[in-house]
Amino acid sequence: MHSFLDAKHMAKALRQALAERGQNISHSDALELVARQYGFANWNMLAARIEAAQLKPLELPSGWHVASGTNERNYRLGIDPQTPGTALIESRPDRDAVIDRAGGETAVLMQSILADPYRGGRLRLTAELRTETAETATLWMRVDPVQGRYLHFDNLMQRPGGPLVGTAGWTERHVVLAVPEAAATIRYGFFLRGSGKVWARRFALEVVGPDVATTEPSPRYLSRPTNLDFGDGQPAA
């Protein structure tokens, strides 16, 4: 039984069958017809899907795992075979052909550790990132209790110059979070949102003193109730 991976052979057979009936079409037209039979708008989109299907999965680094919710049909995550000591997250070549980019899909490579040795202190996570045509790529860390919402979290998204966008050379980024006594686990890693590629290397997790400021965005609380009648800021009549 044929699959979309046999598209080129199917296009050749289709062209020959039509020629036998006196209907001559070009090879490119035959490819377009086969692509539409498989539900693709054109041959380029089907060719990208074939290329993606033939890419081998990357090997995961020891101790790391792919976060639940990551669609590995659309991403490859693991050690970059071309650069030992470097992890890679990349969107597969056909991702933009089958996924609505506005959906904000994210691929995450991470570690999870127990918080026991770090309770009552602060941790700094540091790594270097490099990107190629990335929509958004960044470092992140989260401190979780046994149950319920996280205690502390930062992914650089609310910091100027935090995430990497587009193509960028090796850039160091860091996150500093407090680890309260209620902490049970600490999770950290890096992610790619949307399409493109991001490489990561030289991860380090270290205890720092109270003199090192945390990077978690502060809640935006007002000092007192303000503008309750919505009168301030109205345009002049």
Rank of each mutant, 00 (worst) to 15 (best):
F40V: 04
F40I: 04
F40A: 03
A41H: 14
A41M: 10
W43C: 03
N44Q: 10
M45A: 14
L46F: 08
A47Q: 15
A48E: 06
A48Q: 10
A48L: 13
A48W: 04
R49Q: 10
E51G: 12
E51A: 15
A52I: 01
A52W: 06
A52Q: 09
A53E: 11
A53R: 15
Q54T: 03
Q54L: 13
L55H: 08
L55T: 02
L55K: 14
K56A: 09
P57R: 06
E59Y: 04
L60M: 07
L60N: 02
P61E: 00
P61M: 02
S62A: 09
S62H: 08
G63L: 07
W64Y: 06
W64H: 03
H65A: 01
H65K: 13
H65M: 02
V66D: 00
V66T: 08
A67Q: 12
A67P: 09
S68G: 06
G69W: 09
T70S: 13
T70E: 00
N71A: 13
N71K: 14
N71M: 09
E72P: 05
R73T: 06
R73D: 03
R76T: 01
R76F: 00
L77F: 06
G78E: 05
I79K: 15
I79S: 13
I79C: 12
I79E: 12
D80T: 11
Q82C: 09
Q82T: 12
Q82G: 14
T83N: 14
T83R: 15
P84K: 08
G85D: 05
G85Y: 10
T86W: 12
T86K: 15
I89E: 03
S91H: 12
S91L: 06
R92I: 01
R92Q: 09
P93H: 10
D94L: 09
R95A: 03
R95T: 02
R95H: 10
D96T: 13
A97M: 11
V98N: 08
V98R: 15
V98L: 12
D100L: 10
D100K: 13
D100N: 14
A102M: 11
A102Y: 12
A102H: 13
G103Q: 07
G103E: 01
G104T: 04
G104N: 05
G104A: 07
G104I: 05
G104P: 06
E105G: 13
E105Y: 04
T106G: 00
T106F: 00
V108E: 00
V108S: 00
L109Y: 01
M110A: 03
Q111M: 04
S112E: 11
I113R: 14
I113V: 14
I113E: 04
L114F: 14
L114I: 11
L114R: 15
L114K: 15
A115M: 08
A115K: 13
A115Y: 06
P117A: 07
P117D: 05
P117S: 07
R119K: 15
R119W: 02
G120Y: 03
G120P: 09
G121T: 04
G121K: 13
